[in-house]
Amino acid sequence: MLKLLEGSTRASLLVALTQREVQGRYKGSWLGLGWSLLGPMLMLLLYTLVFTEVMRARWPGISEQGGRTGFALMVYCGMLVHGWMAEILVLSPQALIRQSNYVKKVVFPLPLLPVVGVLAAGVNALIGLSLLLVLNAILGSGLHWSAIALPLVWLPLLLLGLGLAWLLTALGTYLRDIAQLTGFAATALLFASPVLYPASAVPAFLRPWMHLNPLTWLIESTRAVLLLGQWPDLGQWLLMLSLSTLLAFFGFWFFRRVQKGFADVL
């Protein structure tokens, strides 16, 4: 019974901290949570104009008539996945540094703090997802039954994000330079992942290397279930789920392993 009560208390604490984190990011702004939609939309508009009008890029398999709209929806799918991961990479190394007061409290469950960042980034992704579904229903290919598989596709993304958050939070607490490296990594990941282009557009000799990037499968599968009406491949999903679960366990273990020294460096 005590374990159940403790679990319920931590769940309530996690929800409260996540809500505060989301609200705190837009505190004092006129649009509030609206920025989680407006920001990606402005970037999407910029990318679409540059690639379709300036560079005359076209997405393979999309007709000329639906070129701009199709391109925008495909890119926006990739931006949702990349945006979630990029936010984790950028914010996790300073998760404890920004809230060092919690470290001094012996009874506070510190592993929850990286989880708060992952969930807050997930809230932004879900808001963007709702916009994508509306746009696709009105301007794109419509709603597909395969969209109900998206939670399965994003489950490895969640576990991958948790594993990285625990690792980067622990490392970033001791090595402050980690925050600078992850900022660069988030930007590099935008171009090293099939966000602005399909994986099929990559030269054949580079594709094996691209598929080592876990975002490749996550982005391509998100597009498949939402925009193309295709179900995810079970074998690849099981592989992604297994690898991301291992990373999540390892990240949690590493965080707990080095947790005792946090107070000494903050």
Rank of each mutant, 00 (worst) to 15 (best):
A147T: 11
G122S: 00
L181R: 09
L143R: 04
D177A: 09
T173V: 14
L160N: 01
G128I: 07
A147C: 06
V118K: 07
L135R: 13
A192E: 12
S193L: 12
Y174I: 11
P156I: 02
A120F: 03
A147N: 02
L143W: 10
A121H: 03
G172I: 14
L206S: 08
G172D: 08
I127T: 12
T187C: 06
A204K: 15
L162P: 00
L155V: 03
A185Q: 10
Y174L: 14
L196G: 03
G183E: 14
I138V: 15
L119N: 02
N136H: 09
L139Y: 11
P194R: 13
L189E: 10
A170Y: 05
L135K: 13
L167Y: 09
G183D: 15
I178Y: 03
P194Q: 13
T173E: 11
L175I: 14
T187D: 12
L196M: 10
A170K: 02
G142F: 05
A121W: 00
S130F: 07
F184C: 08
Q180R: 14
A170H: 03
L110M: 15
T182H: 10
L110P: 09
L119Q: 01
L132M: 10
L133K: 08
A120N: 00
Q180S: 15
L133P: 06
A186C: 14
A165D: 09
A199Q: 09
L196F: 13
V202T: 06
R207M: 14
L168F: 12
G122A: 04
A199K: 06
L160Y: 07
P114V: 05
A149G: 01
Y197F: 07
S193T: 12
S200M: 07
N124F: 01
A204V: 15
P151K: 04
V118P: 01
L133N: 06
V115Q: 11
V195W: 07
L189M: 15
L157Q: 05
L159Q: 03
S130N: 00
L135H: 13
V202G: 02
V123T: 06
V115P: 03
F191R: 08
G161W: 07
S146T: 12
P203S: 14
G183K: 08
L150D: 06
G163K: 07
A121K: 01
V195S: 07
G122C: 02
L133W: 13
G142V: 01
V134R: 06
H144C: 03
I148Q: 04
L162M: 06
R176A: 11
S130K: 00
V195D: 03
L171Y: 08
H144Y: 11
A201K: 10
F205G: 00
L150S: 05
S200Q: 11
L132E: 08
S141W: 00
P156T: 01
L131A: 15
S141R: 03
L167E: 12
V202W: 04
